[in-house]
Each structure stands twice: as C-alpha cells, then as structure tokens.
Deep mutational scan, measured.
Amino acid sequence: MATGGRRGAAAAPLLVAVAALLLGAAGHLYPGEVCPGMDIRNNLTRLHELENCSVIEGHLQILLMFKTRPEDFRDLSFPKLIMITDYLLLFRVYGLESLKDLFPNLTVIRGSRLFFNYALVIFEMVHLKELGLYNLMNITRGSVRIEKNNELCYLATIDWSRILDSVEDNYIVLNKDDNEECGDICPGTAKGKTNCPATVINGQFVERCWTHSHCQKVCPTICKSHGCTAEGLCCHSECLGNCSQPDDPTKCVACRNFYLDGRCVETCPPPYYHFQDWRCVNFSFCQDLHHKCKNSRRQGCHQYVIHNNKCIPECPSGYTMNSSNLLCTPCLGPCPKVCHLLEGEKTIDSVTSAQELRGCTVINGSLIINIRGGNNLAAELEANLGLIEEISGYLKIRRSYALVSLSFFRKLRLIRGETLEIGNYSFYALDNQNLRQLWDWSKHNLTITQGKLFFHYNPKLCLSEIHKMEEVSGTKGRQERNDIALKTNGDQASCENELLKFSYIRTSFDKI
C-alpha cells in the first residue's frame, strides 16, 4: 500500500482533458527560462521544448504516446526543470519506465491550478516501474492521483506527508504495488545497510526511497516546507523545498512566496507586481503582455491589467481597466465587458449561442446573426445582446428569417469595421425574408467608422429604411451602385405612401 494514499474509496472516473512563447529569463536562482504550460502528445517531438525550461508557468501534460519505446527515452533528460506552477499529468506514455532521468531536479509542483483537485496525476502508464522524482520536495496545493499503472512499484516507500501538507485526498490505487509483488529495495538494503531515512506512518517504520538508488530526502521537522541542505541544516524561511546553503534567500532552489532578481522575498516591493503567484514583474512586463494579447485571437491570451499590486489576466467583477495605466478602477454604474472572439468572429444561430455573449459591452471581433427560429426570440436576444455598444469588426445579418427588427441591439452605437466582410463591408444584410426595420432612427444613433453597407434580398425592408441608415451611420456616399439592390429590397412591402385627393359631386333626387 502506498504510504499516505487512500484505498478502496469510491472515486469519480478520471477524465483526461485534452506555445513556446518565453516569458522571460528567471535569473540567477533558476538555471534556465520560464516556459508556458505545455500539452505534449502523440510523439516526442515537442518534448524537446523543455530543454531550457527551469519553470513551467502553467501545467505540463505528457500523454497518448503509443509508439514510443524505452530506448526512445534513454537520452532524454531535462535537468534544468525545477518547478511547475500548476500540475504534472502523465497518461498512456508507452515505453517510459521512470522519471528519474527525465526530470531529475523537479523540486516543486505548486498546484496553482489543479487537474480535478490533483497536482500530480500518473494514470495508465503501462510501462512505468517507478516514479523516480527523487528531488520532489513540495506539492504546495492539491493532491496526488496514481492509478492503474500495472508495473509501478516504489510507492509504499514514499512518505507523501513530507511532500504535501495533507495526504487525506491522495488516491493511489490499482498499481502493481497493490499486489505486494514489488519487493522494493532501498539503497544499501541488499548489503544489509540502512542508507535512507525511515519514518513512521500508520504504525509502520519504513525506509523512504524513490528507487533502488535514490533515497527520499527527509528534512528535520523544524525546517517545515522550506527544505534543508545535504547536511540537514534548514533553508531560509522564504525558500521552498530545498537550498544549497542554509538561511540564505539567494540560495533557495525555489521560493515559498515570490522570486525577485535572484532572491526569494515575502512580497513584491514597489515598483514590482505579483505575477502568477510566484514571481515579481515590473510595469513594462505587464504592459507588454497586455499589448501582445490586445489584437491576438490565441486562446488563453489575456490583456493583463494591474489590481491590488498584482498583474492579473482581467479586472475583477465591479472594476474596469483604465487604459492609460492598466489599473483596475471601480465602475460607475454597470461595468464594461470586452469579449474577445477566439477566431475573430462568432455566429449567433440560437439563443444558446447568444447567451455566451451575455453582459458583453464591447465585441472584439465580428458578429454573424443567422437565426431561423426560436421561442420568445426578441426578448431572449435583447437579454443577451442588448448591452453590446461596440463591435470592432463587422455585423452580418444573414438568412435570419425569424427577425423582424434589429432593435434587440438596443445599445449598439459603434461598428468600427477594423475587419470587413469580403474585404469591403462593415454591415452586411443578406436574404432576411421578414426583416422590416433596422432601428427606430428617431431614437437610435449608430456610427460606422469604416467599410460599406450591403443589402440584398431583404424583400420587406424598404429602401427608405436603408437610406436612413446611410445618413445616420455616416456611410452615405461610400456605397457603390450594386451594394444596395434596388429590386430585391422592399419588393414585397408597401414602401411608397402617396396622399390621394378626392373630389365629389353631391346629387339628390331633384338636383344634379
């Protein structure tokens, strides 16, 4: 039985969820670079991206490699990797027998973001014989899940209580170790020597080791999670996991709180800001991140802002960003909400898709409305799209047979046209069989910064309504002859009103 693990408890099935942008060198404390989270699957090609990484700022997932063999891993080693800020997950990587050479110096898994409450997941690794993470000293947050690894031993010899604050939620089941077939031998045991430290858990006094050649490092209890030197002297209180010299914040392997210019500090002093819960960055760093993602459509890219001495992905609820200094300031009234469309555009074809934009005031991208039916549609669209004030790209209304009016965009005031449909149009209306009105132009103002209007096959939309939009939106004169079809717009509506004058002759039985 794995020490510190839980057996036999019912657990939810383990679901495996399925960018080499360097964020800056980590400095003297770390020998390499800070790398983003990685999802490495199918083959070993991307694994080489770990070569210079000291910190993975995010998670590391290595999974679904069915053609790899043990010899493929023999020359692979990433000794610079010290810390993973989120979680480490391995799933069905064939041929991998140990992690001792792959990650010989991995010391800390912070667990800032977890995989279903777990910071370390080893699942269905069919050839893994031992973990071998002999320098792993601290899992700051989260638990361990090690399950269905039929060859995995050296679990009962690990004292997880020396690595985690609590072992109650560890789930370590259905491994070879369960069948008591392992016969784990710690260093020196074969020669009758006791080389590794022994600890007591559940009444068992057991030597602690990761492999037959690597003991588990056990520091004096007084050192807590700070770690200790090879001689057993406690590291500085700002260290986490390990250090090369005692009581020196510049000799830590990793930091308990924050890293700044080669030393570990309790908090980031001005003019620095907390970033990702582990390091200090200056304003320029946060500003660069903001600008890199301002026009990016890459998933996970955030326009970072500053709030409460932190550089964070977005302002919290009730705050909006001051564009001059990136500071989050309290909103006066309802907060603006910028919604970034991942692929640059979004099609609204149902109430469900409209709900995804609920509360958005600025759309960074283009909207395509293609709704053919739905219950209580006008009210639903207004509830979900009615706060949109600005669209950076274009607005396209296409084959939306259920629409009679666009009044559900009740606050839309600006279409920038930074991206144009077919390279020309910022407003595009095609084949809307029941569209009769755009907006009530006596109450609604709309500016279209650039781009043209396109109207074709809107049989109940009168040309007068379209011409009014040209005047109000500032697009009059931009359109070419064929942009607004004269014969297919309003051709099934009563669009022309003329005053009919009647004269009559009164007659009676005795007068003409």
Rank of each mutant, 00 (worst) to 15 (best):
H28D: 10
H28L: 10
H28T: 12
Y30A: 15
E33V: 08
V34S: 03
V34G: 06
C35K: 00
P36G: 15
G37A: 15
M38S: 03
M38F: 02
I40L: 04
I40K: 00
I40R: 00
N42M: 12
N43T: 08
N43I: 07
L44G: 04
H48D: 05
H48Q: 14
E49T: 12
E49Y: 09
N52A: 09
S54V: 10
S54N: 06
V55Y: 08
E57A: 07
G58C: 01
H59E: 06
H59Q: 10
L60V: 07
Q61A: 03
Q61T: 11
Q61R: 02
I62A: 01
L63E: 04
M65I: 03
M65L: 09
M65A: 13
M65S: 12
K67I: 12
T68W: 13
R69K: 03
R69A: 14
E71P: 13
E71N: 11
F73T: 03
D75V: 15
D75L: 09
S77R: 09
S77L: 09
P79Y: 04
I82A: 06
I82F: 12
I82Y: 14
M83G: 03
M83H: 07
I84A: 00
I84T: 00
D86K: 04
D86R: 02
D86C: 01
L88K: 00
R92Q: 06
R92V: 02
Y94T: 05
Y94V: 11
Y94F: 06
G95H: 15
E97V: 13
E97G: 10
L99D: 00
L99H: 01
K100P: 02
K100A: 06
D101T: 14
L106A: 00
V108N: 15
I109F: 01
R110T: 05
G111W: 01
S112D: 15
S112E: 13
S112T: 11
R113W: 06
F115R: 06
N117V: 09
N117P: 06
N117K: 11
L120Q: 00
V121L: 03
I122S: 05
E124G: 02
M125G: 05
L128Q: 05
L128G: 01
L128I: 08
L128C: 03
K129L: 04
E130R: 04
L133K: 01
L133M: 04
L133P: 02
Y134F: 13
L136R: 01
M137K: 11
N138G: 11
T140D: 13
T140Y: 08
R141H: 09
R141V: 07
G142F: 01
S143G: 08
V144Q: 01
E147H: 07
E147A: 14
K148P: 01
N150F: 04
C153N: 02
A156E: 03
A156N: 15
A156D: 01
A156V: 09
T157A: 08
T157R: 13
I158W: 04
I158G: 04
D159N: 13
W160V: 02
S161Q: 15
R162D: 07
I163G: 01
V167H: 07
D169K: 07
D169A: 06
N170M: 06
L174C: 12
D177G: 15
D177A: 14
D178V: 11
E180Q: 14
E180N: 08
G183E: 13
D184R: 15
D184Q: 04
P187A: 11
G188L: 11
A190N: 11
A190I: 05
G192H: 14
G192L: 11
T194S: 11
N195Y: 06
C196E: 13
P197L: 09
A198K: 12
T199W: 11
T199H: 14
T199I: 08
T199D: 13
V200P: 14
G203E: 11
G203Q: 09
Q204T: 04
F205Q: 14
R208E: 04
T211H: 09
H212Y: 13
H212F: 12
H214R: 06
C215K: 07
Q216T: 11
V218I: 13
V218Y: 06
C219S: 03
C219H: 09
I222F: 10
K224S: 09
S225W: 15
G227K: 06
G227A: 06
C228G: 00
C228Q: 03
T229E: 06
T229P: 06
E231T: 08
C234S: 04
H236S: 13
G241A: 12
G241V: 04
G241S: 09
G241I: 02
N242H: 12
C243P: 00
C243N: 00
S244Y: 04
S244Q: 05
S244L: 04
Q245K: 07
D247P: 02
D248P: 01
T250H: 08
T250P: 01
V253Y: 15
V253M: 15
R256Y: 10
N257K: 04
F258C: 09
G262C: 03
G262F: 05
R263A: 11
R263K: 09
C264M: 00
V265Q: 02
C268I: 01
P270R: 07
Y272V: 03
Y272A: 02
Y273M: 14
Y273G: 02
Y273A: 07
F275C: 02
Q276G: 05
D277W: 05
D277F: 05
D277N: 14
D277V: 05
W278S: 08
W278V: 05
R279T: 03
V281M: 03
N282R: 15
F283D: 12
F283S: 05
F283I: 12
S284M: 10
S284P: 01
F285W: 06
Q287K: 04
Q287T: 12
Q287E: 15
D288W: 05
H290D: 03
C293L: 06
C293M: 02
C293K: 03
C293F: 03
K294V: 05
N295P: 04
N295S: 10
S296N: 14
R297K: 12
R298W: 13
G300L: 07
H302V: 06
H302K: 01
Q303C: 15
Q303H: 12
Y304V: 10
V305I: 06
I306V: 12
H307E: 08
N308C: 02
N308P: 02
N309D: 06
K310S: 09
K310D: 13
K310C: 08
K310I: 09
P313Q: 04
C315L: 04
P316G: 02
P316D: 12
S317E: 12
S317H: 08
S317N: 05
T320Q: 05
M321V: 15
S323F: 12
S323K: 05
N325P: 05
L327G: 02
C328Q: 02
C328V: 03
C331L: 04
G333S: 06
G333L: 02
P334T: 12
C335P: 09
P336E: 09
P336D: 08
P336N: 13
